[in-house]
Computed example of a mutant assay.
Amino acid sequence: MSRDDELKLLGTKTCPFAIRVRIALNQKGLSYDFLAEDVKNKSELFLRSNPVHKKILVFIHNGRSICESLVILQYIHENWSETSVPSLLPADPYQSVVLGSQLV
């Protein structure tokens, strides 16, 4: 990550989807600001970052907003894959589902 990368995560502390993204960011060793949102009184930054759905959990990278935890994980995986941390996502999603359910 370059010095000018600014990472922010807007969510709630107890949201499992936010926790999933926080774990991924910590595993990748990325510095980020976690901004706790009040579900009933959302911040102006949050409303600007996710104006359509207004759902809690927004990842902001250098001013660009990304929503939905799995999309955020994929974004992190693709943009910070050079770290020595194992991959966040399987190389072949189909294989992991089939092997995980022991259908093979």
Rank of each mutant, 00 (worst) to 15 (best):
K54A: 05
L89A: 11
A18Q: 06
K8R: 11
E37T: 09
P16E: 02
C15I: 02
G29W: 04
S87K: 11
M1P: 07
S43K: 04
V58Y: 05
S49D: 11
K42F: 04
K55A: 08
P93K: 08
E37D: 09
L73C: 00
H77T: 02
G63Q: 10
A18V: 14
D33Y: 09
L89Y: 13
Q27M: 13
I23T: 10
Q74Y: 05
S2N: 11
V52C: 00
S65F: 07
V21S: 06
I66A: 02
L89M: 14
N62K: 09
R48D: 14
I60G: 01
V98Y: 13
A24F: 02
I60P: 05
D5M: 08
L30S: 00
N26V: 01
M1W: 00
S101M: 14
K8T: 01
F46W: 07
V97P: 11
Q102L: 15
D33C: 10
S96Y: 15
K13I: 08
N79C: 10
G100C: 06
P51S: 07
T12D: 01
I76K: 10
K42L: 09
K28F: 10
H53T: 10
R20C: 08
L57R: 03
R20V: 01
C15T: 00
Q102R: 15
D33K: 14
N26E: 05
L30V: 06
E37K: 09
I56S: 03
I23G: 00
L10H: 03
G29P: 05
K55Y: 10
P86H: 12
G100D: 03
L70C: 10
L7A: 04
S49G: 09
